[in-house]
Design a binder for these strands. Structure first.
Length: 271
DNA sequence: ATGGGCACCTGGCTGC
DNA sequence: TGCAGCCAGGTGCCCA
């Protein structure tokens, strides 16, 4: 899946096409997403106009007149804007059709994504209400991480990937941020110092901002919302580079699994 | 409360 | 060439 920069890139890509547009209907080709798509979705959305496209963590929030569509891309989901009548390809599960002839099309090979509608405050939804701060907001800083981490023995990499602590730090950017901050991923969260957490919070912000600026890392199944094949890629220092030389010090990059996820670091640059 | 592990699913790649 | 096995960007939930 898209990590946070990819979700934000998607939000920015689709927003200008759908804000102010009226939904005519919804076509569900395969309702078997992470949770079954509501059979009455089309009836509930038809006639409503998109007022805003927001993001909380990696959830996209499409604000309508009376409610919100909450959409998650899972591991392999993507959204595209296509003209009505464009033949669907494999895994094009849901289409939201607009009166102006455009279609917001959700594709997700692995079907870990989700899409549902609520007329309550989306931020109060069970899946969203307990989330930690957004990494790019001021409330998230090194002092916050330091306070939250006292007494926590798990690996600091898993700590920063915990959505209750901070949202939006996925597997790639967790390794990359720890590299920039010079902290080894396996260290217990409670053993990382306040000064190091300040470095880490700064690193997380800069790594995510840089990736957003670049339009999201290009991964196998991420497609730009407008269908452009022009791919972007941020410069990865450690992720996926096991056995290769560190760009900074030349030390061989190592890999180890933490919490069932591959984790990469440079033993020369990270302590 | 915390942490560990599993589950959900398809597709691409590797190596025999 | 075929196929088994392994790996992949997430995260909710169950259990100890």
């Amino acid at each position: 899946m898209p990590e946070l920069p990819e979700v934000e890139t998607t939000r920015r890509g689709i927003a200008p096409h759908i804000i102010g547009q009226r939904i005519s209907r919804v076509t569900v080709r395969d309702a078997r997403l992470r949770w079954p798509v509501d059979p009455a979705l089309s009836r509930k959305l038809a006639g409503q106009t998109v007022r805003d496209v927001a993001r909380r963590a990696k959830y996209l929030l499409i604000t309508l007149d009376r409610g919100s569509v909450i959409l998650h891309l899972g591991m392999s989901g993507s959204l595209r804007i296509v003209p009505q009548g464009t033949p669907p390809v494999a895994h094009d599960h849901v289409d939201i059709l607009f009166a102006n002839g455009l279609v917001l099309r959700f594709n997700d090979p692995r079907r870990f994504g989700s899409l549902f509608y609520t007329e309550a405050d989306p931020l109060e939804h069970k899946l969203l209400c307990a989330l930690g701060p957004e990494p790019l907001e001021r409330a998230f800083d090194g002092d916050y991480l330091f306070e939250k981490s006292r007494g926590r023995k798990l690996a600091c990499k898993l700590f920063i990937m915990n959505n209750a602590i901070v949202v939006g730090v996925g597997n790639i950017y967790a390794s990359e941020s720890l590299f920039v901050a010079g902290i080894r991923p396996g260290r217990a969260a409670q053993r990382v110092t306040r000064a190091e957490y300040r470095q880490l919070a700064t690193a997380i912000k800069s790594v995510l901002r840089k990736a957003i600026r670049k339009g999201g890392t290009t991964l196998r199944d991420f497609t730009q919302p407008d269908g452009n094949t022009g791919y972007f890629s941020i410069h990865l220092n450690v992720y996926g580079r096991e056995g290769e030389a560190c760009h900074v010090c030349g030390t061989t990059i190592r890999q180890k699994v933490f919490g069932q996820r591959a984790t990469y670091w440079c033993p020369g640059c990270q302590r």
